[in-house]
Amino acid sequence: MIRALYSAASGMTAQQLNIDNIANNLANANTAGYKTRRAQFQDLLYQNVVTPGSSAGQSTIIPSGLQLGLGTRASSNEIIFTQGSFSSTGNPLDLVIQGNGFFQIQQASGTTAYTRAGSFQLNATGTLVTANGNPLQPQITIPPTAQSITIATDGTVTYTLTGQIQAQNAGQITLANFQNPAGLNSIGQSLYLPTDASGDATIGTPGGTEGLGTLQQGYVEESNVSVVDEFINLITSQRAYEANSKVVKAADEMYQQVNNLKQ
């Protein structure tokens, strides 16, 4: 009977975590480059009340026993790396990756982080940086006299100077890819760090054979959060929470009746 109470409690805890996850997805519905996360659950251990295969008599054995499960727990909330939709901004430094790649960002600590959010800006020295001021790797520097900046689908960055027809090459943007992107570690600010589970980054140029995808200039990638799906998840999760709380109540009522047996 206590098992029923704890199983239901584990169900309520799991649904609470599910709602935490849904809340974060919805909060980031408008975060460019955000990838939705999906909570996954698994059942817990089973208690053998009657072990299958034990003998029921001298000549008979019990074909299937009685196993009582002990509830559920959240196993993971994996990142779903489906492509988000593109919205046009007209800003020449807004980039989207049409494919599986990641931009490489050098953090203040010197380590490289990876992101899908490609809204870049120029800093005081003309270097391409993220909104937080961390430079894109490999570094691209545009002189202040540059007129138009063009980033080709293969990552080549060119600009023209006033009065010149010839385009100047500013560098080449490269992208990274991982064996298992779902194993990346989110560190906030739309950045990811590689882990043992994700594997090391494979670097390549956009449009190459590594499946990194191509770049599109003048667009940002919206989050891939489906608000409708999240609301449906929210409803089912809330109802599941409610159902588990009803079991707690039922178990409590049954206890009460047992206690009332002694008058």
């Binding site: 009977m1 098992r3 239901a8 584990s10 799991a14 659950f41 509830g71 599941a240 178990a251």
Partner: peptide, 24 residues
Amino acid sequence: ARMESLELLANNLANVETGGYKAD
């Protein structure tokens, strides 16, 4: 027996969002 039924039901409901779970 009903208490054990409730325990089975509690485990089923706790796993209502567990992918691929089959009810006991």
